[in-house]
Amino acid sequence: MNSMRVNHHPVLGDLETHKEIKIYFDGQEYTAYEGDTIASALLASGVRTLRFHEDKETPRGIYCNIGHCFECRVKVDGKKTVRACLTSAENHMQIESCKALSASEVKGGTL
């Protein structure tokens, strides 16, 4: 599904043809364009929830989209936690949403 793309724009012009790549988010395959960030690629496919609050488990997505707020944290290739809005999507990238922590992992108890 690519209906969220701004393919035509009266001032910026038509979207140039981009190479399509595949990314995986929580195991599901999505099509992205080369040059996308993880955040823009997922939103283009209608995915807004990028993680769940560590303690409250409430869903979170992008807020600032330019690296300031750290709301868009996701895990890439099973190790690094990155800001989805500042990280380029790459072919075959495995992305996981950050999940709520188990009670024993929450330092200092729950809120």
Binding site: R5, V6, L12, S40, A44, T49, G61, Y63, N65
Partner: peptide, 19 residues
């Protein structure tokens, strides 16, 4: 999810070309 700063929407639309 779906709440964002106004600048986030600007960057999504104009830079990434995603609504």
């Amino acid at each position: 999810p779906g709440v964002m700063s106004i600048g986030a929407a600007q960057v999504m639309g104009n830079v990434h070309r995603v609504k």
